[in-house]
Design a protein around this nucleic acid. Structure first.
Length: 291
DNA sequence: ACCCAGGCGGGCG
DNA sequence: CGCCCGCATGGG
């Protein structure tokens, strides 16, 4: 078990705020920690106040594991500066107060892509179920030993493996009409589309490229850029964000997605993704009378 | 039974 | 362009 000191960090709020990390399945989540897969490793993380304890089962050395933890939970983010920047009004201050320490997580681009393609016109519980069933059906199985402990887990299914399955088969896991998108995107990523190259592109260019994929539009692209590539200027506009932004900042008047993007960019620009996560989580967990 | 969910592609005006 | 519609599925 390793340890790292953390401040302005709350793992519970982080993993409960519907980010890809949690889409692996609730049985690996408890009150103070989570177990998740990173490549061919099972990583366990647990928070006790200002200390984050972690360990991995697999082939990661200590330095690589530490790097993964810091990257995944964005522990280098200057939360003081971010909070100051996005505390633009009473509402956001309240959201920050309620969920202080919640981070945007930095997940694998492919995992994030698959999760958010499945998310469209869907609900969080079903998204988790579908992703979980795809992992069970198509993820490579691993057995690791750590001392006298033996553990089985499955890594995230690769584009290559999913590309080989039929749409009809993918639908048997409950993916519905999204099975078409999963198949098409897995094929493109397995064939010629290089997700890694988007790391070297700016937000606008990377978004354009992502949106050439069949089944990735404005909102899903922003989610992938935020949670998969760590581009904090991304501001995914889903039904929750649209509702809450209209209500809080436009007196309930309807705005289209483009107008909401322009508003968010002007107000929170390089930290819009953090503002989004606090707005989203607050909206979902508080009845509308609280807004 | 009915409604909705972290939208998108395609078609139409 | 912007708008509108259908879409698989299952939980509330």
């Amino acid at each position: 078990m390793h340890e790292i000191g953390v401040a302005d960090f709350d793992i519970k709020h982080t993993i409960e705020s519907a980010q890809p990390l949690t889409f692996f399945g609730d049985e690996r989540v408890d009150g103070k920690g989570i177990a998740y897969t990173y490549r061919d490793n099972l990583v366990k993380v647990e928070q006790n106040g200002g200390r984050l304890a972690y360990e991995a089962y697999g082939d990661l050395n200590a330095a690589a594991l530490k790097r993964e933890i810091i990257t995944r939970f964005r522990l280098r983010d200057n939360m003081h500066e971010i909070y100051e920047h996005i505390s633009t009004d009473a509402f956001l201050r309240k959201a920050i107060q309620n969920y202080k320490g919640m981070r945007v997580t930095k997940n694998d681009p492919w995992e994030t892509t698959l999760c958010f393609v499945i998310s469209q016109f869907n609900n969080v519980k079903r998204i988790r179920g579908i992703v979980k069933r795809l992992i069970v059906a198509y993820g490579e199985e691993h057995t690791v030993s750590f001392g006298n402990v033996k553990l089985n887990f499955r890594s995230f299914p690769t584009p290559d493996v999913l590309a080989q399955r039929s749409v009809k088969e993918l639908m048997t896991h409950g993916a519905g009409f999204r099975a078409n998108y999963i198949k098409a995107i897995a094929q493109e990523c397995s064939d010629s589309f290089d997700l890694d190259k988007l790391n070297n592109k700016n937000y606008t260019e990377a978004k354009e490229e992502l949106m050439t994929l069949h089944g990735i539009g404005d909102k899903v692209a922003d989610c992938i850029l935020l949670f998969g590539y760590g581009k904090l200027e991304a501001f995914p506009v889903d039904t929750w964000i649209k509702r809450i932004v209209e209500h809080v900042y436009f007196k309930g008047r309807e705005k289209n997605v483009k107008q909401i993007h322009e508003f968010a960019e002007g107000k929170w620009n390089k930290n819009a993704g953090y503002a989004q996560q606090y707005l989203y989580h607050f909206a979902r967990n508080n009845s509308k009378v609280e807004w």
